[in-house]
Design a protein around this nucleic acid. Structure first.
Length: 302
DNA sequence: ACAACGCCCTGAGGGC
DNA sequence: TGCCCTCAGGGCGTTG
């Protein structure tokens, strides 16, 4: 569920509440939560204790914190249901608490400090996790090598629009598959893909090879718009699973035009929105505004 | 090399 | 009431 806007909200929370703090203890409660850290839980903790977190960064749905003076970064992914929460150390444990990180600072929030709070990774479905990786040399932000293959996201100032269009045309696939391919464009998931396609009046099964340059420019514009609008209201929450570091939900679900609106009228033309099974999930679209691609007739055999 | 599929996982909700 | 089935779906390893 967390896509780029939701992850960015969490990144900002980490920047405010976790960056600059020095770690005293790391408790891994569920091994699956650090499965991408191949050296295991003890190694993960050993490498962090006594170290200090740098600024929080994000690419697509991944976020990371450089660990100062180590050439490594802690990488995080929320998966379907992951949460990074900053909680008072004495707060009751969440049912799906997976990792707990405590810090040295003792100055309380009332005294203008951050002391007395800890970082918790909570994850019901365990698709997410934390791990520690070597930084890619020459990358200024400490990009973890494990995500060097992840494309820049459309809100990144360095995102290459020309390269995106060229890659889209080169692919032999359909447009929604391409939007969800994080090596082509990152940060877009099922919700915002459906929203951007609805705004672009594009059917999810349109072959990428038929998307013209003006259409891909328009699509990219709608992707940026919908991501920015969601970010401005704190992201989308369908249930209580997605929250910021303070446990609060966003409000963008009230603004969705397609996703989750099966049988409700299209906000452009009134036609009931349809839901179709698609790659073990769902695609929501307006059957009138988003016409399916016309299949070219096969050449008639003699 | 590229495209597509299967699997990982748990809780909510529906049907009977 | 309780059980079983389906659904939610991001990313990666495997298969085609």
């Amino acid at each position: 569920m967390p896509e780029l806007p939701e992850v960015e909200v969490v990144r900002r929370g980490l920047e405010q509440w976790v960056s600059g703090r020095t770690i005293t203890s790391v408790e891994v409660r569920h091994a699956r939560a650090i499965r991408r850290h191949l050296a295991g839980p003890a190694d993960f903790a050993d490498r962090l204790i006594g170290r200090t977190f740098g600024p929080a960064h994000r690419r697509g749905k991944y976020l990371w914190l450089p660990v100062e003076d180590t050439g490594t970064s802690v990488l995080g992914h929320l998966g379907m249901s992951g949460q990074l929460l900053v909680q008072p150390a004495g707060a009751p444990e969440e049912p799906h608490l997976r990792i707990r990180v405590q810090f040295t600072d003792t100055r309380t929030p009332e005294a203008g400090g951050l002391g007395g709070t800890e970082l918790r990774f909570v994850d019901q479905r365990t698709f997410g996790g934390l791990s520690l990786h070597t930084q890619v040399p020459g990358e200024p932000d400490g990009l973890p090598d494990a995500i060097a293959h992840i494309a820049r996201d459309p809100l990144d100032p360095v995102f290459d629009e020309d390269a995106f269009h060229a890659a889209l045309r080169r692919r032999r696939t359909t447009v929604k598959r391409a939007l969800l391919d994080q090596s082509l464009i990152s940060g877009v998931g099922n919700i915002y893909a459906d929203e951007a396609l609805w705004r672009s009046k594009l059917h999810y099964e349109r072959p990428t090879a038929t998307v013209t340059r003006p259409r891909s420019v328009e699509l990219l514009g709608h992707i940026r718009d919908v991501l920015n609008e969601a970010l401005a209201v704190g992201g989308t929450s369908f249930d209580s699973l997605y929250v910021n570091v303070n446990g609060e939900s966003g409000y963008f679900d009230r603004s969705l035009d397609a996703y989750g609106r099966e049988d409700e009228p299209c906000r452009r033309c009134g036609t009931p929105i349809r839901r179709r099974p698609w790659m073990n999930r769902s695609s929501y679209y307006c059957p009138r505004c988003q016409r399916p691609p016309v299949r070219r007739a096969l050449p008639r055999r003699a």
